[in-house]
Computed example of a mutant assay.
Amino acid sequence: MRTKQAITKKLNVPVDLVWDAVRGIGRLDVWFPIIETCQVEGHGAGAVRHMTIVNNGGAIRDTIEEINLLRRRLVYLRPVSPFPVTYYRGTVEVLESYDGLAVVVWTIDFESKPEDAQSVADLVKGAIADGIDGMEKDLTASANAVRA
């Protein structure tokens, strides 16, 4: 069963700072409470991101499919995941609000058995919302440190 789950949040952080962090590919272990480690091999499209889930929850591997600088969009495929999915594609878009702050739209498109679809959608929604909150906290601290 194909399912699409989108999480959107306006951050109190300038759009360029958020986009620079997203296109940097890493730091998911800082932003997401569920991710214990995050290591990146390579740069840009084709780079591979290796992660582990806390409490021996398994391994994740992402392949960066696209980084579109003009549209501020990063797309990744997740061929290795501990979740019950047969396909997983994430798209992170950083939009600019009227006040120059960032609006993050993180969309997950996945395929799973019908009986797993809702639990995966709920897991993804919670984990990504937590990750976006963690990103905002991290980038706010970075911006404040630069100003000090």
Rank of each mutant, 00 (worst) to 15 (best):
I53W: 08
M51D: 04
R61Q: 15
V104H: 02
G131N: 01
G26N: 09
N12V: 03
G100K: 08
E111P: 09
I25R: 04
S97E: 10
V104Y: 00
S112I: 10
R61N: 15
V48P: 04
I53M: 15
I25F: 04
D133P: 03
V54A: 13
Q39P: 09
A47N: 05
R73A: 12
L17H: 07
A6C: 14
T140C: 03
N55T: 06
N12C: 05
D99E: 12
T107L: 03
R89G: 00
V22W: 00
L17S: 02
V94E: 06
L74P: 02
V85P: 15
D29V: 01
V103L: 11
P82S: 02
N144K: 14
R78K: 10
A47L: 06
G57P: 12
M51S: 06
N12G: 11
H50Y: 14
E136F: 01
L74M: 13
L28S: 14
F32S: 08
M135P: 02
D109I: 15
D20Q: 07
P84R: 08
A117I: 07
I53A: 11
V94H: 05
W106N: 01
G46H: 08
P114V: 11
V13Q: 02
A59L: 12
R72N: 05
L95R: 14
P82I: 01
R23K: 14
L69P: 03
V22H: 01
S112D: 09
P84C: 11
G42A: 11
G58L: 02
P84Q: 11
L123H: 05
T107A: 07
D138L: 09
Y98S: 14
R72E: 04
C38Q: 09
I132V: 09
Y98C: 07
T86E: 12
V85C: 12
V103A: 02
P33S: 10
T91K: 06
V40H: 05
P82R: 00
A143W: 12
